[in-house]
């Protein structure tokens, strides 16, 4: 049975819609909500909807929460995990599409791309420009078309889960740099078209000054991944 990982920080209001939607779209999936030190009723809402809830006692940030989900998956022996935002941005219809790309053996990691799919989605311009630049960089290095490296809608197989569960995963914003780390480690990454929507409610993690911080942070992270690869410090894939 595959696992659906929902990292959630103060998403009580959104989860009450997202969890039933996800269950309906992916009935065969176990569902774990990683409550990233929320101050609202995130954990209680998720538990009342029948999801497993892992509550982080302090707020770690998006990457730290997702990695907790990977550890959960590895420790329980799941062969496949799909990560989906719990704010309603990701259309759960994409779960099967991503899972099939991995289960079919075409890839170790499948990333949902909003630009391959239908675009009904807005971003601050700073972040949009940054994302274009990062996509271009990653595409150039991996020699494979990457249109949406910031997407957090991903499916991972067992090897990729183990690779990320204890190391190699950034705490704050894993995205374009993470795809490069995978590439240099010898994993195959493919993109699949998915639909993204405006978040249902609450505060996005990319608001105010954060887009600018985000772009600089990601630029530094990507540069460091490339530098590590060139100085033979990259992490390598280990067999199952």
């Amino acid at each position: 049975m595959p696992l659906l990982i929902l990292p959630a920080h103060n998403e009580a209001s959104n989860l009450s819609r997202v969890i039933p939607e996800a269950r309906a779209a992916a009935p065969g999936y176990d569902l774990v909500v990683i409550d990233d030190g929320s101050r609202d009723a995130t954990a209680a809402v998720a538990a009342s909807l029948g999801a497993e809830v892992v509550t982080l006692p302090a707020n770690l940030g998006y990457g730290g929460a997702v990695q907790t989900g990977f550890r959960y998956a590895v420790e329980r022996g799941y062969d496949l995990a799909v990560v989906m935002d719990s704010d309603g941005q990701h259309d759960p219809a994409g779960i099967h599409l991503l899972a099939e790309a991995v289960l079919g053996g075409q890839a170790d990691v499948a990333v949902g791309s909003r630009f391959h799919g239908r675009m009904d989605y807005h971003q601050p311009w700073v972040k949009r420009v940054g994302m274009r630049l990062f996509a271009w960089t990653v595409s150039r290095i991996t020699q494979r078309e990457v249109t949406d490296p910031t997407s957090g809608f991903q499916a991972l197989n067992r090897d990729a889960l183990r690779f990320f569960a204890y190391d190699n995963y950034p705490v704050d914003y894993p995205d374009a740099d993470t795809l490069l780390v995978l590439h240099y480690a010898g994993f195959r990454v493919v993109e699949a078209p998915v639909t993204m929507r405006e978040r249902l409610g609450g505060v996005s993690m990319h608001s105010g000054w954060k887009p600018i911080y985000y772009v600089f942070k990601m630029w530094l992270a990507i540069s460091m991944v490339v530098l590590r690869a060139q100085t033979r410090l990259s992490a390598k894939r280990t067999g199952a």
């Binding site: 990683i34 497993e52 892992v54 509550t55 982080l56 006692p57 770690l60 907790t68 550890r71 705490v171």
Partner: peptide
């Protein structure tokens, strides 16, 4: 220290669960 705290937080959450 941040790295250590991250590992501790994750481990604690999974153990509690």
């Amino acid at each position: 220290n941040e790295d250590r705290i991250k590992v501790l937080t994750q481990e604690l959450a999974l153990l509690s669960h």
